[in-house]
Simulated scan of single mutants.
Amino acid sequence: MCGRFAITHASDAMARLFEAAPANNLPDIPNYNVCPTTQIHVVFREDNGRRLVPMRWGFVPRWYKTPTDGPLLINARAETIAEKPAFREACRQRRCLIPADGFYEWFRPEGGDKLPWFIQPADEGPMVFAGIWQEWGASEDRISSCAIVTTEATGHMAEIHHRIPVILQAENWAKWLGEEGRGAARLMTAAADETLTFHRVGTAVNSNRAQGPDLIEEID
């Protein structure tokens, strides 16, 4: 799964990178400990082009009576996303890009406590997760929400955790957004080990209140 991530790229730089029109109320950057239910940066496609907007991380299905009416859906499994009632329409019609610097995952050694790792692109460029989004509610109560698509981990990542976010390379952003016809389903695969780096970080990140660049620094 993906339960925390970091983002430091400036909003205007992200707007240029994705060729997207930015909203005026984007979340503050940097954020070294992005947690579920917070507002995150999301790129989606409208008829007149791409937009960079804030969305709640935690997908709210249309039938929820309140945003907390059911389980918190921060991830959507690639293997079942096209079948699950909560996700199947969004998977076909409302796919999005979720930018990050990298994400955290926790590994529990035998007989020990969970230890946090930070996973980021080997080229130190932006990491872009495949996402889906949904609008819930009406008028002033309307909420735009999203979930990160995950898949079965392979290689070194599988030694840390059995799931990994679907990470999209730049040449596949348009395909995922539906700008280049069909074929998005074929993108829901695990990233190759050589495209990622992995390092241990301190346990300060175990707290969802922790912040600062020290959270992503490597420790022995």
Rank of each mutant, 00 (worst) to 15 (best):
R95T: 14
R95E: 14
R95I: 14
R95M: 14
R95K: 14
C96V: 03
C96M: 02
C96T: 03
L97F: 12
L97S: 12
L97H: 11
I98E: 08
I98G: 08
I98L: 11
P99V: 05
P99A: 06
P99M: 05
A100D: 01
A100L: 00
G102L: 01
F103W: 09
F103L: 05
Y104F: 10
E105C: 04
W106T: 08
W106V: 09
W106K: 09
W106A: 08
W106M: 09
W106F: 12
F107S: 14
F107Q: 15
F107W: 11
R108P: 10
R108G: 11
P109T: 00
P109N: 00
E110V: 14
E110I: 13
E110W: 11
E110F: 13
G111Y: 05
G111L: 07
G111H: 04
G111K: 07
G111D: 05
G112T: 12
G112Y: 12
D113P: 02
D113E: 04
K114I: 12
K114M: 14
K114T: 13
K114E: 15
K114N: 14
K114R: 15
L115K: 11
L115H: 09
P116K: 04
P116I: 07
P116H: 04
P116C: 06
P116S: 06
P116W: 05
P116D: 05
W117I: 11
W117E: 10
W117F: 15
Q120D: 10
Q120G: 10
A122H: 05
A122K: 05
A122F: 03
D123A: 11
D123P: 08
E124L: 10
E124K: 11
E124G: 09
G125H: 07
G125M: 06
G125C: 07
G125V: 06
P126H: 09
P126I: 11
M127F: 02
M127T: 03
M127I: 03
V128I: 00
V128Y: 00
V128P: 00
V128R: 00
F129K: 08
A130F: 09
A130G: 10
A130L: 09
A130R: 09
G131T: 03
G131W: 04
G131L: 04
G131N: 04
W133Q: 03
Q134A: 08
Q134P: 09
Q134Y: 08
Q134W: 08
Q134E: 15
E135F: 12
E135M: 14
E135T: 15
W136Q: 03
W136K: 03
W136E: 03
A138I: 10
A138R: 13
A138T: 14
S139P: 06
E140I: 02
E140A: 05
E140P: 00
E140W: 00
R142L: 15
R142Q: 15
I143V: 07
I143D: 02
I143Q: 06
S144M: 09
S145P: 02
S145F: 01
S145E: 01
C146R: 00
C146G: 01
C146L: 01
C146D: 00
A147M: 06
A147W: 04
I148E: 10
I148H: 10
V149H: 09
V149G: 10
V149A: 10
T150E: 13
T150Y: 12
T151V: 14
T151Y: 13
T151E: 13
E152W: 02
A153P: 12
A153D: 12
A153S: 15
